[in-house]
Design a binder for these strands. Structure first.
Lengths: 169, 169
DNA sequence: TATTGTTATACTCTATAACTATA
DNA sequence: TATAGTTATAGAGTATAACAATA
């Protein structure tokens, strides 16, 4: 937090971390505002629709989607209920395993996705990529994709126990 | 959202955008969990404490802090109230302008900051920087700092009107 | 017994607008 | 009149745990 004492991170790393977090949060806010105003969608609802729109399957199980979106199961049910109420998705028990629920886009859901996407893409282009050279786009991917893979697999469990030992000032 | 039709973004840009968002959100979740478990702090509360801990001033006005943290004023009052209840900060009217409220860290607030920081830094080091070459740290800063500056100044107002014209499929 | 998902409940956070007080 | 901040109120989202149904 304060910059006057550092153990594990140098000044450059700390600056990179702050910048990364600030960009992530400002960008998420801007995108969330757009999705809400343009499609009355919360970020999670938009993610669910996007995942359903990107698959070629007939439907996806809740658990399969939850694997791609970090989220509690109850919160997921709540959001899926919202989307179903609005007629954007359907919920149906899976044929092979009746415990599972298959989510599918309705025609209206697909329409909404098509209606919102251009503005979403244009917003991101303006905010992030308008002045970014192609080489920087590549650099961003090269640097962040390994971090993403690490974060995906790493439930941040062990960190605290290990870090606490450094807490003795 | 779906990748089969793109107007303003190439595949690389889209991939970079998705990766950036996912890293931001996974990292924020991990950090938020740590701050909650280790210091019972919400992300915003932690940010307020961090800003207060990083300044050399006697206290900061609400508005000065809000400038560094995107947040509504009422939400800010709510969070400041929480921190004051816990004895981590004090609120006092400013001497020169009695409309303003000066926030200051108490000794307990400073202690909490010192107690939580090592684990926070260590978590970020493990999740982000352990396997990242110094050159990549530089690259990340070079690419993202201009984006951050753009996002800071850019209230995402005009995007929708401009983007809607592309919506005619 | 374990897994998938839903629901009840309580809580936190956020947004809007009305309000107080100072400038 | 404009600005700084608070508060009332209402709503959205989230987490936990208890629950039902299926494997």
């Amino acid at each position: 937090m304060s910059a006057d004492e550092r153990q594990g991170l140098g000044a450059d790393q700390l600056a990179a971390y702050y910048t990364l977090m600030e960009v992530g949060s400002l960008l998420e806010q801007a995108v969330a505002q757009h999705l809400r105003e343009d499609g009355d969608l919360s970020p999670v609802q938009a993610q669910i629709l996007a995942v359903l729109g990107d698959t070629s399957e007939d439907g996806l199980r809740m658990t399969d989607i939850a694997d791609r979106i970090v989220y509690s199961r109850s919160g997921f049910s709540y959001q899926a209920g919202k989307l179903e109420q609005r007629g954007l998705i359907t919920r149906a028990p899976a044929a092979d395993d009746e415990r599972s629920t298959l989510l599918s886009l309705t025609a209206e859901g697909r329409d909404l996705l098509r209606r919102v996407r251009p503005g979403h893409v244009e917003l991101v282009r303006m905010l992030v990529f308008e002045a970014m050279p192609d080489a920087d786009v590549q650099a961003l991917r090269n640097v962040l994709e390994p971090v993403r893979d690490r974060l995906r697999q790493d439930p941040p469990r062990s960190a605290r126990a290990q870090a606490r030992r450094n807490t003795r000032d």
